[in-house]
Every structure is written in C-alpha cells, then in structure tokens.
Simulated assay, not measured.
Amino acid sequence: MPRNSATPRTVSEPESSDSLRAFGAVLKAFRERASLTQEQLAPLVSYSPHFVGSVEQGRRMPPSDFVERAEHALDAFGALRAAARHVARRPGLAAWFRLWAQLEATAVSLCTYECRVVPGLLQTEAYARAVMRNVPPPPTEEQIEERIAARLGRQVLFTRRPPAALSFIIEESVLLRGLGGADVTRELLDHLIQCTELWNVEIQIMPLRQPLHAGADGPMQILETEEHRWMGYSEGQKTGQLISDPKAVSVLQMRYARMRSQAVSLGDSVEVLKRMRGSL
C-alpha cells in the first residue's frame, strides 16, 4: 500500500493466540461429543464449514452469534460462553475493538464514516502518533509502539487477496484541523491522495458546509462478512458497540448511502485533497 512512512508490520492471517486455540479446542470437544462433523455443525450455527474449522484451529475470533448458536446446537451448558469471555487478541487494540478488527480483517467490503479523526485504516504512522499522544492519559512509549503496530498492521486490508472494497467518508473539518502540525498533515494528505489511486478504495470528503447531513448521529462503520452478512460498529469514548441486528444495520446502510450522495463526489474529493495539500 502506498505511503511515505515506514513499512507496516502486517500479518496475512488474523493472529492466533493461546486463548483462541483454547476456545477452538473446547468447541471441537463439544462437537465431537455431539457426534457432529464440521460440515454438520456449520448449518446449525449459520456459518460455513471452513469458518468452523478456522475457529477450532484458533485462527478466527468467534463472533457472539456463533458462540450462542454453538451453545444451543451442542448443548454446551455455558462452557462455550465462558471460554469466549477469555478469548484475547494481539496487543495494541482496545478491548472493545478486538472483535470488530477480526471481522474487518476478512471483510468483503467496508464502509467508514468519521467526523473526529482520520480513520485508522488511512492513518500514517506520524499522524497515528499525534493522535495517541494528544489523548490523555499519556501512554508509555511501549504502549504507543504496540498501538501503532496494531493500527498499521490492519492496513494489510488494502492489498489483501482476495481484495476488499473500501469506502470512506471523512469530514473536511478533520483534515483542516492539522493535527500534529503542518509536516504531519502534508504527509497525511499525500498518503490519502495515493490511496485514492487504488482501484478498491473510495474516499469522499463531507464538506464543511452541508445543510443536509445524514451522519448527525456520529461516526459509524458497516461491513460485509465472508458469509455475506452485514454488521455495524459504533464507537465512543472507551466504548464500542457491535451491531448485528438486521434492522439496525439496515438503518446504518441507509444513512451511509445518503451520506455518499451528500459528500463531495469521488473525483472532486481528490481535488479537495490536492487543494488542501497545496495550501500548506
């Protein structure tokens, strides 16, 4: 992926962990206790046999709906729920964001609207540092390095195969803020312009003056999973909400579709970015 900062530390597969493998072992034990194959369990939990196998091998984070369906299908008397509570992810990601990061890593498509900071998937290393150092309490250098590695590592999504379709809507005010100073902003704008050249990436700018705005409720993300389910995510201070209810996700989809028509067009958004860059 084009960027002026150092090459990110990335992984081609979601990171495994002891807790993920432990959950997978518990799931496998209950599946075998029920005398079911992975192919037989798959329709009972509404996921593919490949996904079931990946969870059992500790390579995939088990979504909450998967855990609940497996609980009922395997009569696991709460053991799977208990094991899921101890599943951990790599350092550097907030606890409330970990499951969304897992879904993001294998998403077919992802749509992001942001009105506070540039989305993490589009941040340069310097911009990410500026964000982290400006939000109290001050992190340690070790925490900053862990968070940057995790944030930049997520950007493998841009060049992953099979590719993901990525759409971003960013408030113009976020870029005008100049977080981190002129040098950081110049590098960031260069990076965003480069990203618009990727065939699977669309970036639109929501103008500073827009009397019709469907995003008044704040930032949001929606994605399509490998199983072609749609999920939503909303994040606040120290909290994150995964949205799986189809009706609620449909509302987010309607809002995002409206915002795409209200934001500056794709081509004109590139020109906006270039004008901002030229003014620095």
Score class of each variant (00 low, 15 high):
M1G: 13
R3V: 10
R3K: 09
P14M: 07
S16D: 07
S16V: 06
S19H: 05
L20K: 15
F23P: 02
A29L: 11
E32I: 09
R33P: 02
A34G: 06
T37G: 08
T37S: 15
Q38D: 05
L41T: 04
A42L: 07
V45P: 03
V45R: 04
Y47N: 08
P49V: 09
H50D: 10
V52N: 01
V52Y: 00
R59D: 07
P62Y: 00
P63H: 04
P63A: 09
S64R: 13
D65R: 09
R69W: 04
E71G: 09
L74I: 06
L74M: 06
A76S: 13
G78H: 07
A79P: 00
A79E: 14
A82Y: 05
A82F: 06
A83W: 01
A84P: 03
H86T: 14
R89C: 08
L93C: 08
A94E: 09
A94H: 11
F97P: 06
L99H: 10
L103A: 12
L103S: 10
C115T: 11
C115M: 07
V118M: 08
P119R: 03
L121R: 00
T124G: 08
E125P: 11
R129V: 12
A130M: 08
P136L: 06
E142V: 13
A149H: 11
A149D: 15
G153S: 07
Q155Y: 10
Q155R: 07
V156D: 06
P163R: 12
A164P: 01
F168H: 05
F168W: 05
I169C: 07
I170N: 05
I170K: 02
E171I: 03
E171K: 06
E172R: 06
L176M: 12
R177Q: 12
G178L: 04
L179I: 14
A182C: 06
V184Y: 01
R186S: 10
L188F: 03
L189V: 07
I193S: 01
I193N: 04
I193G: 02
C195Q: 12
T196P: 04
L198F: 07
W199D: 11
V201G: 03
E202L: 05
L208A: 11
R209E: 12
Q210Y: 00
P211L: 10
H213W: 11
G215S: 08
P219C: 08
M220Q: 08
I222T: 15
L223Y: 00
E226L: 13
E227D: 15
H228D: 11
R229N: 14
W230H: 15
M231I: 15
Y233N: 02
Q241N: 09
I243K: 02
D245L: 07
K247H: 11
A248Y: 00
V251Y: 03
M254D: 14
S261D: 10
S261A: 12
L266F: 12
G267M: 10
V270A: 04
V270L: 14
L273W: 02
K274P: 02
M276L: 15
